[in-house]
Structure formats: C-alpha cells, structure tokens
C-alpha cells in the first residue's frame, strides 16, 4: 500500500515538473519549492547522521578524543554570523578552512594533477605510425590549449596561431563534453518515462 501511494506521489511530482515544458505554472512551482524544502531537511539529517555524530560526538564522548574540541570550536564560532556584534569571530573559522584548502591545494595541485598530467603528456614522438600521430596531436593540443590561456603577452605571430589552433582543440573538447551531457540527460529522461509507463501506468512490463 505504501509503495503504491509512493509511486502515485512520484508520478504526480514528475508530471508537475514536466508541466514546465508548456510554461511556468503553479504545479511546477509547487514541486520546485517542495523539492528545495525537502532536500534542505534531508541534508540536515544527513549531516547529523554522517558528520556530526560519527565524526564529532561519538569520538569525543565514547573515545575521549578531546582534540575534536578544535573543529567544534571553529564550527560553533562560524555561527556567530547570526550575532552582528561578534560576527567577526566567524572570520577565524573561514581562515581555518581557507588555510586548510589552500595547503591541500598546493600539494594536491602539484602531486595530484600537474605532475601526473605532465608525465602523461611526455610521450614518444618517434617512428611513423598512427600511435605517434596521436601522441603528436596530444602534445600539440596541450601546448596550443595552454597558449590560448596565456594572457601575459599580446597574442601576435606564433602565439596568435598557437592560440587559434588551441581554440579548435578546446571546441572539440567542449563538443564532446556537450554530447556526453546531452546523453546523460536523455538517459535520465528515458528513466523517468520508463518509470511513468512501467511502475505507474503498468503499460510496459
């Protein structure tokens, strides 16, 4: 019984959202606001169940890990933004998280991305075969793309041509990403239509 009611609710909400294809209307607005409200509530409970309780309260109370008072302190002073007289305290929390992000950013960018990607671009360019041609295209594409984003010098002469070829590679990459995104959305659309025809209307078995 619960499942049947759930399917009818899900089907109704799906149709409410699709009604936007005709034009903006109260049914769409209802579903949109309900989605935002429920999702906000969901994330509150999720944060409690998967972050605050297992990462802060349980280790502090059960395992006596009192070092966790530090993130708890920074978390609590973040809430001082509610009180204008002491809202300056929230800057300490922001500074703490930004410092952490920046520190991880330095090591993460070098170790996690720059070095592996440069290494992957250092490919053999010897011999006359299709693999060499592909390797050449990769090296050439990476360099021209970087030239396109090089704004420290006026793009004239070689830089201008490099930049022009770079934008061609970039357009191919954007086109591929665009195609992928369209396919992902269409598969979601197929999933929703399949749900309506199969689970709800039982036309498809």
């Amino acid at each position: 019984m619960g499942t049947t009611i759930g399917i009818w609710i899900a089907a109704g909400l799906t149709l409410f959202i699709y009604s936007f294809l005709y034009k903006d209307n109260p049914f769409y607005k209802f579903a949109e606001h309900l989605y935002v409200g429920i999702t906000a509530g969901y994330w509150i409970i999720y944060t409690w169940a998967y972050v605050i309780q297992p990462m802060l309260l349980d280790p502090m109370i059960k395992n006596k890990q009192f070092i966790l008072i530090i993130p708890a302190f920074f978390g609590i002073i973040m809430l001082t933004r509610w009180f204008p007289q002491i809202s300056w305290l929230s800057r300490w929390s922001i500074a703490f998280t930004v410092g952490m992000g920046a520190g991880l950013g330095v090591t993460g960018a070098i170790q996690g991305f720059i070095l592996p990607q440069v290494q992957a671009t250092l490919v053999p360019l010897t011999g006359f075969n299709f693999e060499t041609f592909n390797n050449f295209l990769i090296v050439f594409g990476v360099l021209t793309t970087l030239i396109y984003f090089y704004f420290s010098k006026e793009q004239k002469g070689v830089l201008r041509w490099g930049s022009k070829i770079g934008i061609t590679f970039i357009m191919v990459a954007f086109g591929a990403s665009f195609g992928y995104t369209v396919m992902a959305r269409i598969s979601l659309l197929i999933g929703r239509i399949y749900f309506l025809l199969s689970d709800w209307l039982k036309v498809l078995r």
Partner: peptide
Amino acid sequence: IMQVPQMAAKRGIGLGISLGALGVSIRII
C-alpha cells in the same frame, strides 16, 4: 575523439586551472 583531441584540450585546461589554483593558494597562505 575522446582519447586524443578531447584529452589534449582537457589536459591543457586542467593544467591551466591547477597552475592558477596553485598560485592563488600560495597567495592566500
């Protein structure tokens, strides 16, 4: 397309982003 030209441009963009992020991180610290 995915393995060669797309990969090349994506790598170039990624390197640009990472170098930028690295610079900003150092400036912040």
